[in-house]
């Protein structure tokens, strides 16, 4: 079984930064997911240009989409939405990007704007 892949949807012309998730981060994501409360909220409005959220895609078919407090897990077509009030998942995921990807400052700013950057 291969590694889960994470990427930030942020660029338009050049390819988005994409990286393999380490076990520690994946474990954090899975544990945190279990603690979050299910939500009926609609997907928030996402900017057309600029940071548009993070994704995780795992070999067994699980796919997460995370944008601020909105977290969606799609397991082979079954979609569950949860609310991450502290945006821990998004912060953890962006922090897990290798430095080589040099995630742009506006990705950080997106989280900064809510005052929760680590």
């Amino acid at each position: 079984m291969g590694k889960c892949i994470a990427w930030a949807s942020v660029f338009s012309g050049r390819p988005d930064p994409e990286w393999s998730l380490d076990d520690e981060t994946l474990g954090f994501v899975e544990r945190t997911w279990e603690t979050l409360k299910p939500s009926l909220e609609q997907q928030p409005t996402i900017p057309i240009l600029g940071y548009r959220g993070c994704y995780i895609r795992c070999p067994e078919g699980n796919k997460w989409f995370i944008y601020k407090t909105f977290v969606k897990l799609n397991i082979k077509g079954n979609v569950v939405i949860k609310h991450d009030a502290n945006m821990e998942l998004e912060r953890k995921l962006i922090n897990s990007a290798p430095k080589i990807f040099q995630l742009p400052s506006f990705v950080w700013n997106n989280i900064d704007s809510d005052g929760i950057k680590e």
């Binding site: 660029f11 338009s12 012309g13 742009p104 506006f106």
Partner: peptide, 23 residues
């Protein structure tokens, strides 16, 4: 600047449209 570039195209109706990355 420093991060990315982006393109728009002008359509037959005179308005512009675009495709931001994978979206």
């Amino acid at each position: 600047p420093g991060w990315d570039y982006h393109w728009y195209r002008k359509g037959r109706n005179g308005y512009w449209s675009h495709k931001p990355g994978h979206t």
